[in-house]
Design a protein around this nucleic acid. Structure first.
Length: 113
DNA sequence: GTTGTGACTCCAT
DNA sequence: CATGGAGCCACAA
C-alpha cells in the first residue's frame, strides 16, 4: 500500500471537518493530518480538493494563495468568516479553527484538577 | 540520478 | 512592506 494515499485521505478528512466560518493554515492542516510539510497539503488539495471545503485553508498569515485570492475570499466572506480590517485576508486570531489534535475517546482530558 | 516547480513557512536583510 | 534564501517533500521531465 502507499502511504501517500493515506496521507491524501487524512488531509482531505481534516479539511473536510473544518466548520463553516472557520479556517486553518496549511501548516495547521499539515500538523493535524501528520503531513510531512505544508507544501504537501497544497499538493493534495490541488489534486483531490474538489470534494472538500478547500477555501477554508490559507497561508499562515491569513492570506489565500495568489491564484485563488478573489474566489477564496468571496467564498469565505459568504460564510461569514471573520475578515481582517483591510479585507483581502482572514483574521486568523478570530477565525482560526481550534480543532482537537485528535478526537481520541481513549485520551483522558489533560485538564483534571 | 539530477533539475525544476509548486495551493508552504520561517527568518534575515 | 518587499525580497531573497533556506528548509522541506512529492512529482514530472
Amino acid at each position: 500500500m502507499s502511504g501517500t494515499d493515506e496521507l491524501d485521505q487524512r488531509v482531505l478528512a481534516v479539511v473536510g471537518r473544518i466548520p463553516p466560518g472557520r479556517v486553518l493554515s496549511y501548516g495547521d492542516v499539515a500538523a493535524l493530518a501528520a503531513a510531512p510539510t505544508p507544501r504537501e497539503v497544497g499538493q493534495v488539495l490541488a489534486r483531490h480538493g474538489e470534494g472538500v471545503p478547500w477555501w477554508r485553508v490559507l497561508h499562515a498569515d491569513g492570506t489565500p494563495p495568489a491564484h485563488l485570492r478573489e474566489r477564496q475570499l468571496a467564498l469565505l466572506r459568504a460564510e461569514g468568516t471573520a475578515m481582517a480590517p483591510y479585507g483581502g485576508a482572514v483574521d486568523l486570531a478570530s477565525a482560526r479553527w481550534e480543532a482537537a489534535p485528535d478526537p481520541d475517546p481513549q485520551q483522558p482530558s489533560l485538564f483534571d484538577p
